[in-house]
């Protein structure tokens, strides 16, 4: 266990990002797809904060904006999910085809 460098944090963030991408691409439950999007945003935040350690505070400020964005995205996404559930009585991603013909 040597010195922890920025590269270590970037590797952890890359792992979280890939796990989030796999979740978005493979799951069928819309709620868990939204959680995977949160994982992706968190991985980006970890990258920004790790780089802000090297340069200045701008990365931390950007990560706070991304958190506000994530809150807005979660609220709107879950609102869409509730409207969809009221229409179709399911949370399955494969049945989201109202705009498809």
């Amino acid at each position: 266990m040597g010195e922890i460098t920025t590269l270590h944090y970037l590797v952890v963030a890359a792992a979280l990002f890939i796990i989030g991408v796999i979740g978005v691409l493979t799951r069928r439950n819309v709620v868990i797809i939204l959680m995977s999007i949160e994982l992706i945003l968190n991985a980006v935040n970890l990258n920004l904060v790790a780089f802000s350690r090297l340069y200045n505070l701008q990365g931390q400020i950007f990560s706070i904006f991304i958190m506000a964005d994530a809150a807005a995205e979660a609220a709107v996404g879950l609102g869409i999910l509730i409207a969809f559930f009221r229409n179709k009585e399911t949370v399955n991603m494969d049945e989201v085809d109202l705009l498809k013909w």
Binding site: A68, A72, A75, V76, G79, I80
Partner: peptide, 16 residues
């Protein structure tokens, strides 16, 4: 960002 959050609140309420 505050404007974005306001729009998100209104959108979530309208949709739900």
């Amino acid at each position: 960002a505050s404007l974005l959050l306001l729009v998100a609140i209104v959108g979530a309420v309208v949709m739900a």
